[in-house]
Structure formats: structure tokens, C-alpha cells
């Protein structure tokens, strides 16, 4: 991983020194272990702060929305797909971007690791496939592939789809994984069981909207949860209001979500909010053969009308 960090710094310094870009967006060490902060380096010296390891779980495409500068951006597989979505939705121009592609072997799940220890984790060291987690009076070595986030463990697009320069050779894509395994499990339940499952899932939600803020797709000038005239979504902790929020958030991501997992990584309560968006991703794949952010050449299915669009849901008499 240090090789990645060195290469990213080297590219960032070169771009900034040659004034090819005004800033490079990457990650730097955060104030907490296991979750790195986004970092906007505007000078070659600042580029020394950039790092890369398995704690870069946020999605940097989030910071591109409506930017006017020329930007160098560090992008793993899912980030690059979100950059494609941003370009398709006219939120940034391709010419503004210099994409530093990072082949990714998955990011670790902060919630999973934190749940394993009683006391606070203060340091994480990564070497190859092993992670050494330590804190006050304990130290333990874990295997990284076992600690991956759910979406990374079932990821089939690890390499960037769009890039100007890669920091390393592409990694091999995973085969034989099923990203929709949990969706299928829920689909088999009865309506009452489904209801109970989701009620339980979101029962700890505190409506902090971290999932919305971490999501690169959520850039509406006024979010539906902040609208008050008329107010469509209740702001209370009432289970119905919480559910309305989660369902609507998922609908906003329909056909656009790349399953990057930033929402889940950002959630302070460790709620598996991807359970909502994943269902829509599966539908998009099954109904339209579409996975978001793979190509610049095609408009997303919800943008376009085709006479053969599926319409089984319409009542026929």
C-alpha cells in the first residue's frame, strides 16, 4: 500500500508543479483511525499529506459537484463510476478532470472491526493482506479479506473504468461473487416479514443524514428532507418518517447508485442502508440491463424512453 501512496504523491506533485490542475483530491489521515478524510491538495508541498490504504472508504466523486477548477482526483473503481455518473449528469466536465486511477482490493469495514473490540482503537497498521489493530492494552492482527465491507467483498468492478493514469497494474476482478445475495434472501420473505426486517434494520436510525452527505449522488440544491413548504417527509424519529426518508433516498439513487458503500461507511449507527439501494440496483440490472457508471456513451435508463421498456406493473383490462 505504501507503493500506492508514494505513486499518488508523485503524480499529484507533478500535476501541481506543472500547473496542469488547480488541486488534487485524495485522502489524508483522519483524526480517527479506520476512516480517512478527504484532502484537497493545492500545492506540491500539500501533496505530501496524501495517503492510500484500506481505510479510504468514502467516495471522492462527492467533492466534484459543480466545481469550476481543473481537478486531479484519486479514484478507485467505484469512485470512477461515480465520476462517470457526474459527467453524464453535467455536474463536472471531463476536460476539467485528471483522474488518477487506483486499482482497489477493497476497503475495510470500520463497524465490523470496532464491534470486535471493547475499548477504543487508536492505531491500525496495514501490511499486505494483514491488518494490525491496536489500542490501549491490546493488539491484534486480522486478515484484510475477512474484514472487507460487504459491498467490497462482492465487488465486480475493482478497477477504474475511466482514468488518465493508473498508479499500478489493474487487479484481477472477482468472479463467482453475488452482490445481490442479501436482496434475494429478503425477496423470499412474506410482506409482513419484510416489514419486520426493515423496521428492525432502521430502528436505530438517528436521522443525522450522514448517508445523504457522504453520497456523491445527493447534490440537490434543497434536499427533500429539508423542504418545508410543502413538507413531504416528516422530520421526527417516528418509524414511519424514518422509513419514508430511507425509501425516498433510495429512489433518488435509482439507476445511479454504484454501490460504493460510502453511505454505510459514514453511518454512525452502522445501519446497513445499502439494503434499500441494492434492491433498486438489482431491478435496474434485471429490467434494463444497466449498471451505473460504466460508460459515457449511453444515457441511463431512467433518462430515456424506449418502446420496449418493461411495463408489467401497469394494470391491463
Amino acid at each position: 500500500m505504501t507503493a500506492y501512496t508514494d505513486k499518488i504523491r508523485e503524480i499529484a506533485k507533478r500535476l501541481l508543479a506543472e500547473k496542469k490542475v488547480d488541486m488534487v483530491i485524495g485522502f489524508r489521515k483522519g483524526s480517527l483511525p479506520l476512516l480517512h478524510q478527504p484532502c484537497m491538495a493545492t500545492s506540491p508541498e500539500a501533496a505530501d499529506e496524501l495517503v492510500w490504504d484500506s481505510c479510504c472508504s468514502l467516495n471522492l466523486a462527492n467533492y466534484l459537484t459543480d466545481r469550476k477548477e481543473r481537478i486531479g482526483i484519486v479514484a478507485k473503481g467505484c469512485d470512477s463510476r461515480n465520476i462517470v455518473t457526474h459527467i453524464l449528469e453535467n455536474k463536472i466536465k471531463r476536460e476539467q478532470l485528471y483522474i488518477i486511477g487506483v486499482p482497489c482490493t477493497g476497503m475495510i469495514d470500520r463497524h465490523k472491526i470496532c464491534a470486535m473490540f471493547d475499548s477504543e482503537i487508536t492505531a491500525v497498521k496495514e501490511e499486505g493482506d494483514s491488518l494490525t489493530v491496536s489500542g490501549d492494552g491490546f493488539s491484534k492482527t486480522l486478515s484484510k479479506p475477512e474484514m472487507l465491507r460487504d459491498n467490497c467483498a462482492a465487488c465486480t468492478h475493482r478497477n477504474p473504468v475511466l482514468y488518465d493514469e493508473m498508479v499500478a497494474e489493474p487487479v484481477s476482478e472477482q468472479t463467482g461473487v453475488d452482490p445481490y445475495a442479501s436482496v434475494k434472501k429478503i425477496e423470499a420473505l412474506s410482506p409482513a416479514e419484510k416489514q419486520a426486517y426493515f423496521d428492525d434494520l432502521i430502528s436505530t436510525c438517528i436521522r443525522c443524514y450522514a448517508c445523504r452527505n457522504a453520497c456523491p449522488l445527493c447534490y440537490c440544491p434543497t434536499c427533500f428532507v429539508d423542504e418545508s413548504r410543502p413538507q413531504w417527509v416528516g422530520k421526527s424519529q417516528d418509524p414511519v418518517d424514518v422509513k419514508t426518508f430511507h425509501i425516498l433516498r433510495a429512489y433518488h439513487c435509482a439507476g445511479r447508485c454504484t454501490d460504493c458503500g460510502a453511505c454505510e461507511a459514514a453511518c454512525p449507527m452502522g445501519i446497513k442502508v445499502r439494503e434499500f439501494t441494492k434492491k433498486l440496483n438489482k431491478d435496474c440490472l434485471e429490467l434494463y440491463g444497466w449498471e451505473a457508471g460504466l460508460t459515457l456513451k449511453q444515457r441511463p435508463p431512467l433518462d430515456t424512453f424506449k418502446p420496449n421498456d418493461p411495463e408489467e406493473f401497469i394494470i391491463r383490462i
Partner: peptide, 10 residues
């Protein structure tokens, strides 16, 4: 809009 449906049910 999906929010009309959810607001109605709510």
C-alpha cells in the same frame, strides 16, 4: 413523484 405516494400513505 415517489414522495407523493409515500406522503399519501403516511
Amino acid at each position: 413523484n415517489p414522495k407523493f405516494i409515500l406522503a399519501g400513505l403516511r
